[in-house]
């Protein structure tokens, strides 16, 4: 019954975006999530740690994460997500907001 934890990495051989200072974004409301996004030197890869009350969406998380990494060019980063049943639309929205903020900093 414990929270479902999912860890995976998305490779990125040629990152175009790197992160500065780590930061936090979002609220764990129903259908929403929070994330901490920080830089982590790991051969270009972006690692994800997701804590979620719902199971059975592992592939979906990976697909969204993969699309985000491809789209953004982000590399060498670690992203922790506390999820409360966010839809992929919301996940992607928050990831993009995080990236926009990271690059604005």
């Amino acid at each position: 019954m414990a929270l479902n934890q999912l860890n995976f990495s998305i490779e990125n051989a040629s990152p175009t975006v790197a992160l500065g200072e780590a930061f936090h974004l979002g609220v764990v409301g129903s259908g929403d999530l929070e994330m901490i996004i920080e830089s982590k030197e790991q051969g270009g890869a972006v690692s994800f740690q997701i804590l979620s009350p719902v199971t059975g969406f592992d592939d979906l998380w990976k697909r969204v994460a993969d699309a985000f990494v491809r789209e953004s060019g982000l590399g060498n980063a670690h992203i922790e997500i506390n999820d409360n049943n966010a839809t992929p639309a919301v996940v992607m929205l928050r990831l993009r907001q995080a990236l926009a903020e990271a690059t604005a900093r």
């Binding site: 719902v54 969406f57 979906l60 049943n85 839809t87 992929p88 639309a89």
Partner: peptide, 8 residues
């Protein structure tokens, strides 16, 4: 529509 609705 959003691609996923309630309860994903």
């Amino acid at each position: 529509v959003e691609t996923f609705g309630e309860g994903r």
